[in-house]
Simulated scan of single mutants.
Amino acid sequence: MSRFTPLDPRNLFKALESANPSDTLPSTKTLLDAVRFNEAGLLPAIAQQFDSGEVLMMAWMNREALEETLATQRVCYYSRSRQKLWRKGETSGQQQQLKTATLDCDGDTLLLQVDQTGPACHTGRRSCFYVSLSNEHATITSEPLIDPATLYGKK
């Protein structure tokens, strides 16, 4: 057992605060047991383009989606509206290949470094973050790369 494996998994991320890159950490299974999924069993996951740093989207993962993503290196989310796993690009072809997955210090948010094929957003835009807000006005910061009707085969 690692010095970072407390008897109570809820304390694991607190114990990791003193960890260094050279330390031996608990297994991924042990870490996933300590992840703080919300009351619906979900974890927010932020997808970022690995080479540019561009934030592409935020979606939700349950443990099954996270385990599948780690095993296949193809990003899989959990669709709250459809109540099922959502393999990014299964309809649009705009897939995300996982480069790295990193948990935050509290174990309640995931950062995915990905290689995104085409647009990440269902609107056909590269990023889902295209509505810019100021104190008095909002602006659209990008145009769709692909018409959503074309992207999802709707004519």
Rank of each mutant, 00 (worst) to 15 (best):
L98H: 11
Q96C: 07
G93Q: 14
Q113V: 05
K84L: 10
H122R: 10
C128V: 03
S127R: 00
L111R: 02
C76D: 00
C76A: 08
D106T: 04
Q116F: 12
V114M: 01
E136C: 10
Y78K: 04
S127W: 01
D106N: 06
G93P: 12
D104H: 12
D104E: 05
H137M: 07
Y77R: 02
L85W: 15
L98N: 11
Q113K: 11
R87A: 07
K84H: 14
L103V: 02
F129S: 00
S92Q: 13
L110I: 03
L111W: 01
D106A: 04
Q113Y: 10
T102N: 07
G124K: 02
L111A: 02
Y130S: 01
F129R: 02
Q97E: 05
H137L: 12
G124S: 00
A101K: 07
T109A: 01
L98G: 09
G93F: 09
S79H: 12
K99V: 14
C128I: 01
D104L: 09
Q94S: 15
A101P: 07
L111N: 03
E90R: 12
L85S: 11
R126W: 00
Q94E: 15
G89E: 14
Y78I: 01
T102K: 09
V131L: 07
D108N: 03
R126L: 01
K88M: 11
D104F: 14
R80K: 12
Q95F: 15
S92I: 08
S134Y: 14
T91V: 15
S134A: 07
G89T: 13
G118R: 05
A101D: 11
S134E: 10
H137F: 06
T91W: 09
D106Y: 05
D108G: 01
C128S: 10
H137G: 05
